[in-house]
Amino acid sequence: MTPSDAPHSHWSDLERPPLNVPALRRGLLRPGGLWTSLDVVETTGSTNSDLAARAASGLAEGTVLVAEEQTAGRGRLDRTWTAPARSGLFFSVFLEPGDIPVARWGWLPLLTGVAVATGLARAAGVDTALKWPNDLLVTVAGEERKAGGILAERAGDGVVVGTGLNVTLRAAELPAPTAGSLALAGAVSTDRETLLRAVLRSLEHWYGRWREADGDAAASGLQEAYAAGCATLGRPVRAELPGDRTLTGEAVAIDGDGRLVLSTDEGLREPLSAGDIVHLRGAGGELT
């Protein structure tokens, strides 16, 4: 695994050129800014795993690692995330919010979701919705599809937050019928450098607001922004919980700890801090 600082001359898909690393560094690394280094590797197993390993021996906050291709990308519940080389954005960042109470660090994947969605709205012209806790949804041919996901993991004295996003994936390349991409959702731009700059600038903005508010999601506006963009709220869902427990109800709120609050058929309100959420069509029909 070696960083690449110059365009490759051997890519096979001319519609998927490699990232221009010097241009990305010029646009994102600045004195006093959050991002302190940015490397792009041609291929790796998982950018999250790579940064987590480096964090064990000390890593500067604001380190960004991008892969043109991931061969062992991971999502929640140890699910795999793979896609053709240069067809998406696969990157991880190292954040070290040491002065923020650890109990509030659970907001970081939700914060990243808000940042990605707002960055893509500006740069790609695509309405990206958030499925609690960490999926990125787009609309393809009138259907809700998963185009990306976020995974946050404790590492060293901080957190590694990884994002995988399908950008130019074609219909024949989709890993599942429920998957989508920005291109299939009608993005006005699928230039990965433009998108990555927009997403990382948005992440810097939201992370700064959250830190200034001492990690208070309500005071920073994060809780309101997440709820506004969350496709899970206001609909019937099935929550598949640890211990083979299943709960069905209406998703009614995101609480101050970032938990999804369900209103159950028994009239109870139950906050969920973990679980696999299935959106339902009503009358028990599964959607995603």
Results as ranks from 00 to 15, higher is better:
Ala60Asp: 13
Ala60His: 08
Glu61Ala: 14
Gly62Ser: 10
Val66Cys: 12
Val66His: 11
Ala67Phe: 01
Ala67Leu: 12
Glu68Tyr: 07
Glu68Ser: 09
Glu69Gln: 15
Ala72Leu: 08
Ala72Cys: 04
Ala72Trp: 00
Arg74Met: 05
Arg74Gln: 12
Gly75Lys: 10
Leu77Lys: 11
Asp78Arg: 13
Arg79Gln: 12
Arg79Phe: 06
Arg79Tyr: 09
Arg79Thr: 13
Thr80Met: 10
Thr80Arg: 15
Trp81Ala: 05
Arg86His: 15
Ser87Pro: 05
Ser87Thr: 08
Gly88Glu: 03
Leu89Trp: 02
Leu89Ile: 14
Leu89Ala: 02
Phe90Ser: 01
Phe90Val: 00
Phe91Asn: 02
Phe91Asp: 00
Ser92Thr: 03
Val93Leu: 13
Phe94Thr: 09
Phe94His: 15
Leu95Ile: 09
Leu95Ala: 07
Glu96Cys: 07
Pro97Gln: 03
Gly98Ala: 14
Asp99Phe: 05
Pro101Glu: 11
Pro101Thr: 04
Arg104Asn: 10
Gly106Asp: 05
Leu108Cys: 06
Pro109Lys: 03
Pro109Val: 04
Leu110Gly: 02
Leu111Ser: 06
Leu111Thr: 10
Gly113Leu: 02
Gly113Ile: 06
Ala115His: 05
Val116Ile: 11
Ala117Ser: 15
Thr118Lys: 13
Gly119Ile: 05
Gly119Thr: 08
Ala121Trp: 06
Ala123Pro: 04
Ala123Phe: 07
Ala124Gly: 13
Val126Trp: 04
Val126Lys: 00
Asp127Ile: 07
Asp127Asn: 13
Thr128Gln: 01
Lys131Asp: 06
Trp132Met: 08
Asn134Met: 07
Asn134Pro: 05
Asn134Val: 08
Asp135Phe: 12
Asp135Arg: 07
Asp135Asn: 13
Leu136Tyr: 09
Val138Glu: 12
Thr139Glu: 07
Thr139Ala: 09
Val140Asp: 03
Ala141Lys: 14
Ala141Gln: 15
Gly142Ser: 13
Gly142Ile: 14
Gly142Glu: 14
Gly142Asn: 15
Glu143Lys: 14
Arg145Met: 08
Arg145Lys: 15
Lys146Asn: 07
Gly148His: 00
Gly148Trp: 01
Gly149Cys: 11
Gly149Leu: 05
Leu151Asp: 00
Leu151Trp: 01
Glu153Trp: 03
Glu153His: 04
Arg154Tyr: 08
Ala155Gln: 11
Gly156Ala: 08
Asp157Arg: 13
Asp157Ser: 12
Val159Ser: 02
Thr163Cys: 15
Gly164Leu: 03
Thr168Gln: 01
Thr168Lys: 01
Ala171Cys: 01
Ala172Tyr: 03
Ala172Glu: 15
Glu173Phe: 07
Glu173Arg: 05
Leu174His: 09
